[in-house]
């Protein structure tokens, strides 16, 4: 394991401190936790938006904390959901009186721990609503689909709605709309190594790739021989298009999983765009880069979000989060 770290058991704490040190005017770390919140949280009368999950997905989730996006992100250990007490601290810290909205990725761990936190918060009289993101079409059964890169669109749009003064119900409605209209599919060329584990999460031969990968270093749904960028892009995009009828306008995200050079993401994007053009889907905005990673995994995912006028406006709204500029 080659990593630039101090102690495998301290990576999340060190990272949180390093992040706040980079943006001391924008972010703060809640004492005794690895929760990162907007420096000015709680914002009075604004619904607070809280997300989070295991660490190792950087810039998710703390990179999306900022005016116009998340109010706080709770960071668990690497690939491990934050515990209810941490999420509860995040909820309390961002509650400006209008309630708190949770953006949860659909993993049993995240769902359980966030739900327990919500129960604790409700017991203290804080109104809590949530959305569970399940954009990963690699899984057939819709209820057990994972939340992956599409989550970033939920952060952005729910965050914008809150910034504009949306109520908890309005935010819930628009977040649900994003979840209904967003689909992703990923693949990987290499595994990654959880610092505390010290060994790669799985083994892949020099000529193999995994299709239908999540963001926790797990193997994919199918192991195949490596093929060209064009064919990979086609396989991912086709799977997404097959799952949901995309028509009209869409936002596209070509997301790198950690160690894929931007060069390769651009090459994938070229083909994705040409497939969409062929299908008559109008690309309203494209995001190419690392938005939701899996440590140093090599690979990428393709996300499509069908847009209506409301979603376009919210996607376009300004964001001050370090990792999302809009």
């Amino acid at each position: 394991m080659k990593k630039i770290i101090n102690d495998p058991n301290q990576v999340v704490q060190d990272m949180a401190e390093g992040m706040v040190a980079a943006y001391p005017d924008k972010l703060k770390q809640l004492p005794g936790t690895t929760v990162i919140a907007r420096k000015d949280a709680p914002v009075a009368k604004k619904v607070g938006i809280v997300s989070g999950g295991g660490s190792g997905h950087e810039p998710a989730h703390a990179g999306y904390v900022g005016k116009g996006m998340l109010d706080a992100a709770a960071a668990g250990e690497v690939f491990t959901s934050p515990t209810p007490d941490q999420v509860f601290e995040a909820i309390k810290a961002v509650n400006g009186g209008a309630g708190v909205f949770l953006v949860i990725k659909n993993y049993m761990g995240d769902v359980l721990n966030f739900e327990m936190a919500a129960e604790l918060a409700e017991a203290e009289g804080i109104q809590v609503e949530k959305v569970i993101v399940n954009d990963d079409v690699a899984i057939d059964d819709q209820s057990s689909r994972r939340g992956i890169a599409g989550t970033v669109f939920v952060h952005k749009i729910a965050g914008a709605k809150a910034e504009q003064g949306g109520s908890l119900e309005e935010i819930k409605a628009v977040a649900d709309k994003v979840v209904e209209n967003v689909r992703s599919m990923g693949m990987a060329l290499t595994p990654c190594t959880v610092p505390a584990a010290g060994t790669p999460s799985f083994q892949l031969a020099e000529n193999e790739m995994e299709i239908g990968i999540g963001i926790h270093g797990e193997s994919g749904i199918e192991r195949k021989e490596i093929t060209t960028a064009d064919e990979i892009a086609k396989e991912l995009t086709d799977k997404v298009l097959h799952d949901f009828e995309f028509t009209g306008d869409a936002a596209v995200m070509v997301n790198g999983l950690g160690s894929t050079p931007e060069m390769e993401l651009s090459i994938v994007n070229k083909q994705v765009q040409s497939i969409l053009a062929e299908k008559g889907i109008n690309v309203y905005q494209t995001f190419v880069g690392e938005y939701m990673t899996s440590l140093e995994m090599a690979g990428c995912s393709v996300t499509l979000l069908k847009l209506d006028d409301e979603l376009k406006a919210l996607l376009n709204a300004s964001s001050h989060a370090p990792a999302f500029h809009g």
Binding site: G76, T83, P84, G109, L112, N113, M116
Partner: peptide, 12 residues
């Protein structure tokens, strides 16, 4: 266990 494990197994 609930406040230290994290993951699915902690709450369970």
């Amino acid at each position: 266990l609930m406040s230290k494990v994290g993951g699915a197994s902690g709450p369970l």
